[in-house]
Design a protein around this nucleic acid. Structure first.
Length: 478
DNA sequence: TGAGGATTTAGGATG
DNA sequence: CATCCTCCAATCCTCA
């Protein structure tokens, strides 16, 4: 008994060491790259091992793992030169460590990072940059900015579930490890997904490039963040800006033209969620720390509002597409709330509606029409609100215990109000019909070799659904 | 009442 | 194929 306890405590300390080293490596990526070069034998082994994915993708996506491990697995001590004593006392308790680290974080993280410096796949990303820029220009960013604007955000149609399938070429390992966020580029001219993982990596996968005659596989990997990427935003009105947030409290904005991950915002609190109103690309709604929603005006670079809306972390923030003053939040305090931004009040926030569940609520999303709200909770229920004032609700049992290693399930809407898509623990995608109020089908495929946890429907390609796993894979159903 | 331990869990790496 | 390693979730539990 006592010996096992001692072991676990030793383990904890060791893990703290490893974690620190990882952060260190992240901030000293160039050095670890050099170290990687000197360990070609290791790299060779990593590249030749096999699992069921297309070989080119595998080799590329493997690289960052090797990079991250190289120092450690070589048995070398991490290079501490140039660092403050923050990291020099490995057995320090985590509490004291936190108080040391958080006030003055590594200054490197607070500056803009060029795409080149953040690139961890050591592959030219010219194609990626050009592709995005061509779409930005092509889709009339400078031209017709008015009337059609709203319609351009997404298409709203019903899809035939039977026709949805997963082609083997639409499977790729885009990043190492667990994916927390996945987002399609909201443009009709592009089929590209962006995913963020636990290490702070951002992976791009241009599916079209993949299908064309082999100039690379269309996968690009960066590390703009030191910690898990909690949200990715690409506003359809400013396509050349990709905004990402992380648990470490940073918000970065990738300016594709400047090829720089700029720093938009930083806080000592974790950022668990982030959203924008569909009609406003300037204000960021940040779910911070223990239940605060902070509105950050990107243009003036200051906070315009900050409310304490929940008692625990806010897992999602979402807006009603038809009434963008209506905001829904879901929280680990066991509630989901609907707020009217015009009536929220300054000091004492008052919600339009509170949904109380038995466990943490992991998502609350408005349907494409805005008439319904779908919530997913750890109490193993999916709830769908409807009615003029969201007074009707039906609940459906859905097993949501993803455990420790998987990202939590979040039911997302498809291309109209009829279906909700959510992963299940048997490597399938459950589809729930709001009309029939039941599970109508499950998308399954032998190519789906891991559990899809996070989803995003392509706003302009009905039936195109990206699913992301805790192993870094992305599946694109079409 | 809060801090901190124990426990659960899937996927990839390793041998 | 079996075993080890992951180790910023969430919950229940115990102990100060």
């Amino acid at each position: 008994m006592s010996s096992s306890q001692r072991i676990t405590e030793y383990e904890r300390k060791r893990l703290e060491n490893i974690k620190r080293n990882d952060e260190l490596l992240a901030s000293l990526k160039i050095k670890s790259k050099l170290a990687d070069l000197s360990s070609s034998a290791k790299r060779h082994r990593a590249e030749t091992k096999s699992y069921k994915l297309s070989p080119e993708k595998k080799a590329r996506s493997e690289t960052p793992i090797v990079i991250r491990r190289s120092l450690r697995t070589q048995g070398k001590a991490p290079d501490l030169s140039g660092l403050k004593d923050d990291f020099s006392e490995p057995t320090k308790k985590s509490t004291t460590l936190k108080s040391q680290v958080s006030p003055n974080q590594s200054p490197k993280k607070l500056e803009p990072i060029s795409m080149r410096d953040a690139n961890t796949c050591s592959e030219s990303d010219e194609l990626l940059v050009n592709k995005i820029l061509s779409v930005c220009k092509g889709s009339g960013l400078d031209g017709d900015g008015d009337g059609d604007g709203e319609r351009k955000c997404r298409v709203r149609v019903s899809v035939d579930l039977e026709s949805m399938e997963l082609a083997p070429e639409n499977v790729a390992r885009v990043v190492p490890n667990r994916i927390l966020s996945v987002k399609f580029f909201p443009s009709a001219g592009l089929r590209m997904v962006v995913v963020g993982n636990k290490f702070g990596n951002l992976g791009f996968w241009n599916v079209d490039l993949d299908n064309e005659d082999g100039d690379g596989d269309g996968i690009y990997l960066y590390q703009p963040h030191p910690s898990p990427v909690s949200a990715i935003l690409i506003h359809p009105f400013s396509l050349n800006k990709i905004i990402t947030s992380c648990y470490g409290g940073l918000v970065r904005s990738l300016d594709v033209e400047k090829e720089t991950f700029g720093l938009v915002y930083s806080t000592e609190h974790a950022i668990f969620s982030m959203a924008q109103q569909p009609d406003d690309a300037n204000n960021l709604y940040l779910g911070e720390g223990h239940g605060v929603v902070n509105i950050w005006d990107e243009r003036s670079a200051r906070s315009s509002f900050s409310w304490e809306l929940h008692d625990s972390r806010i897992n999602t923030i979402d807006f009603n597409p038809e009434n963008t003053n209506m905001m829904a939040t879901s929280s680990s305090d066991g509630t989901a709330c609907i707020w009217d931004l015009r009536k929220i009040g300054k000091s004492k926030p008052k919600s339009l509606k509170v949904i109380t569940r038995e466990r943490a609520v992991h998502s609350a999303y408005f349907s494409p029409s805005g008439d319904r709200l779908a919530t997913t909770s750890l109490d193993d229920k999916i709830g769908v609100l409807g009615g003029a004032n969201y007074e009707d609700e039906f609940m459906l049992y859905h097993y949501n215990q993803t455990g420790r290693w998987l990202s939590s399930f979040k039911g997302v809407w498809g291309w109209d109000d009829s279906y909700i898509f959510i992963g299940n623990m048997k490597r399938g995608v459950d589809v729930i019909s709001t009309l029939q109020q039941r599970l109508v089908t499950t998308l399954e495929s032998p190519h789906m070799t891991a559990i899809p946890c996070r989803f995003d429907p392509h706003p302009f390609y009905p039936g195109m659904l990206a699913g992301a796993t805790s192993g870094g894979q992305v599946y694109i159903w079409t």
